[in-house]
Design a protein around this nucleic acid. Sequence first.
DNA 1: TGGTCATATTTGTCTGACAAATGTACTTCT
DNA 2: AGAAGTACATTTGTCAGACAAATATGACCA
Lengths: 244, 244
Amino acid sequence: MDKMKIQNNSVTLVDQVEDKLLNYFKEKDMRKGDSIQNEKELAASLGVSRSVLREALSRLKMMGIIETRTRRGMILSEPSILGGMKRVVDPRILSEDSLFDILGFRIMLEIGICSEIFRQITPRDIESLEEIVNVGIVYENNEYAPFSEFAFHTKLYQITGNKTITEFQNIIHPVMTFVKDKFQDFLAPINIQLKKEGRIVTHQDLLRYLKENDEDGYRKALEQHFEVYRLFIRQKEERGRPKK
Amino acid sequence: MDKMKIQNNSVTLVDQVEDKLLNYFKEKDMRKGDSIQNEKELAASLGVSRSVLREALSRLKMMGIIETRTRRGMILSEPSILGGMKRVVDPRILSEDSLFDILGFRIMLEIGICSEIFRQITPRDIESLEEIVNVGIVYENNEYAPFSEFAFHTKLYQITGNKTITEFQNIIHPVMTFVKDKFQDFLAPINIQLKKEGRIVTHQDLLRYLKENDEDGYRKALEQHFEVYRLFIRQKEERGRPKK
DNA sequence: TGGTCATATTTGTCTGACAAATGTACTTCT
DNA sequence: AGAAGTACATTTGTCAGACAAATATGACCA
């Protein structure tokens, strides 16, 4: 990993300053809301020009680590863990491989939250899900209107009570929509095939398992619900890397 | 969300330029390796000064979206999805709540990859795991030497073949180590209690389930393996938010 | 006391300059 | 003629200084 750094490009002053700033905040044990020296002083004490300092600060601002207001100075702020990810996770920036990785990531995560869901779920949650399912618009072949799809799965993530997981879902949802849209022609036949075999699992089905408190049944159903993507990813892998 | 933006601070020129650049790359359908105009021209065509442009570029560099070399100009590069996360996921920056969220995230994800592991695992993988377990140093009460712990779980993530997931594990591992270290006094008694009840699941146990191709057994064992953290998180939640 | 206004400070932006690195073209030597 | 070395030009990296915009602060007045 270090070799990569050396290979890529020499560490620039801005990189160093960025690092120094982070270390500085950590060493001083500064908390959210604490104010930071003004740029002039900071630049002086770091021994760099204001422009270099500003580039470093700009990065930290983007990450949400600091906030600035004219004349009011800068304050430390708690960054969103996935804030950086948000900018990058754009279907138009990422390669197909990465998109499929994210797709797989999301599927595995949603399967992973099963047990937590069953631990945390309340009757209220069931009601919410029921409403989402009832209001939801279902197209043929296990396709849902984007909003219904989003609402249902987001609710599942929310039940875990884990904000980071919920945020993650929000960030990668556009990727799901994009993949669904772009590869519609590949997904449709798989869905039709699954339907023929009677292996389609709907949101309604999932909700039933939740109501019946059947965790194992739910997990298996959920895996089946995602089967279309799994098959699709496998197809893609086989085509992309024909041998080995 | 839009309200937040307005409330926080007016969108600065740098923010706009950053956005414009991303849009520009997307619209031109530029791919990894494509070269980008030099700073002077870019600044001119965007109608901003070089310093503003450089702040925006600096952000993109940090995200790994572009790379620069003196005199060779800038090229587009594929960003690491989690690259931005890497900088933020530092135990010294994040609040305890976030740390616990990440802890929970990781646990759920690792449970979620079970089925994929059983689909993908090869005899070679089993061998690797066996070696890791054999070489590994185990302290008392289900505590592993950091390296053994890291090697074992990293291998599990690798088996999925999903690079993003593996990278994720690498990034959040320091958080795990930090939490283990910082809250040792809370974790130890829980582990002792679990041991008394004979509910400790070791890496060796997990490996056995893998060898026997017993997915359900493995999943339940893995949940048990993480039980100490789950109990710990619940403890923390109850203390942190006494009512409601 | 309370309101208004001038001032000073701080971030945001622009301009111009030089340093370092390196691709390019030219020159020189064999 | 070809290869090697060298000077030049270009591009990123860094610095210094200036002004604009916003606003906290303090002075001044009713």
